[in-house]
Amino acid sequence: MSAQTAGPETLGHLSDEPPQQPQDSTKAKSITGKSPMRIAMGRLARDKIALVCAFVVVIFVLVAVFAGAICSIFNVSTDTVLPSQYLDTLGGGLPLPEYGPPNGGFTIDHPFGIAPQSATDNLAYWVYGARTSLEISFTATLFASVFGIFLGLIAGFVGGVVDKSISFLVDLFLTIPFLLAGLVIAPIINQNFNASDNYPRIQFWALIVVLAGFGWMGVARLIRGEVLSLREREFVQAARVIGMPARRILLKELLPNLAAPIVVSISLMLPTFVAAEAGFAYLGIGVTSGISWGQTINKATPFFESYPLYLWEPVIGIVALVLALNLLGDAIRDALDPKTRR
């Protein structure tokens, strides 16, 4: 009798243990209910390269935003000084040894050294050059993205003659390179506005117009292709059946589903504009009346052999910022792509 009762108790005890789930089902349960954006953010949080690049970009942004405060902390400025007090006029205009490299060590008064011939502080010009580069690239990216998204939405959703006209406009602008547009526009600006008190700001906005005006085509093409695919989906067809206006369909139904390609296009456009701004300034067709990394490179080129640090400082800044933005853009693209398994 006791043997008969022992069996059910043992079986009952075993049946009370929770069944072990396979590892795959546990992983599937862990992502249940998460939106695609949340999954993408989780991927980015696990990507060490993306985190390092994001940290570098944040540092550059903080340097650009607080450029004035940084110069105040180190007691440096972009004001013109008397070069004869700081330079060896008989030695090619290089800084005296007591004021730092190339003939002396680093000093706390001028951590990045001083510029030959002009004796301006390199640190002050570096941080304000970062501000100029990021301000121009961010503004141009914003304008180019908004314009490209707008035209891409209209072309993909309306179709027909409107789509063909916008596609022709995109192809037309793609035949005109950045450099040629800058070479044409810069002399016109110099001739008409060089006597104006606001000439530096005019150059600033003219460069933004050139960058944004010839940088929106890739975004427009990408958005147009995505909209052509999305407009045939059931949720768009249902919105049309119930009489939802086209403006609401574009803004409420299509645009939220385009967040991933928009973020990717913006993250890849930023480094292109940073490099383009420096290149234009180096060629003398960008920001020539203000402070720019490209202008510093242009001035430092003749001193490459005698004072290489003067050239390497802006070059390292451009390379670090562009590389961080590019790697971060690639990480964002992989994180938003459901087919990748990084």
Rank of each mutant, 00 (worst) to 15 (best):
L255C: 06
T10I: 15
H13Q: 14
G105W: 03
F173R: 09
L174M: 04
Y310M: 13
V162M: 06
I59P: 08
A67P: 05
A195I: 13
F147D: 08
N192T: 15
A50Q: 04
I242R: 13
D330H: 13
F235H: 13
I185N: 06
S265F: 08
F66Q: 09
L87E: 01
D330F: 12
V319G: 07
S25I: 11
W293T: 10
G12N: 11
I114Y: 09
P83E: 01
L134V: 04
T89M: 15
K27Y: 14
L328Q: 06
V236W: 01
D24I: 11
P302F: 02
D171Q: 07
A155Q: 11
D79S: 11
A300M: 04
V210R: 00
G218L: 08
I223H: 01
V158I: 07
T132I: 03
S35N: 04
D337I: 03
I70V: 12
I332D: 02
T175W: 11
L169V: 11
G42M: 07
H13V: 14
P271D: 02
G286S: 03
I223L: 05
A259V: 14
G279M: 10
Q191S: 15
S265N: 12
F178N: 15
G104M: 02
I166D: 00
K339G: 10
V158T: 04
V236F: 03
P102F: 05
L228F: 10
V63S: 02
M217N: 01
K299C: 11
S118F: 09
T296I: 04
R248E: 03
L328H: 07
Q295F: 08
I262H: 02
R342Q: 09
V274D: 00
F304R: 06
G290A: 05
P36C: 00
G286A: 06
W126M: 10
A212T: 04
A50M: 09
Q295H: 08
P116N: 01
L90A: 15
E305Y: 14
Q23P: 09
G42W: 07
I39M: 09
L90S: 15
A67H: 07
A115S: 12
Y199A: 00
A155V: 12
I318L: 10
I166F: 00
L11S: 12
E232Q: 13
Q237P: 12
A54S: 14
L11G: 12
I202V: 08
L254M: 07
I136C: 04
Y128C: 10
P111G: 06
D334V: 03
G104P: 03
T32I: 15
I318N: 00
T120I: 15
V287L: 13
Q117K: 14
A115L: 10
P245S: 05
A195T: 13
G152Q: 02
P111F: 06
S196V: 11
S137D: 00
G290K: 03
T132M: 05
S165C: 12
E234G: 10
I31G: 11
W126T: 05
V241M: 08
F112V: 02
V76L: 06
P200M: 01
R248K: 03
N192V: 15
S30I: 06
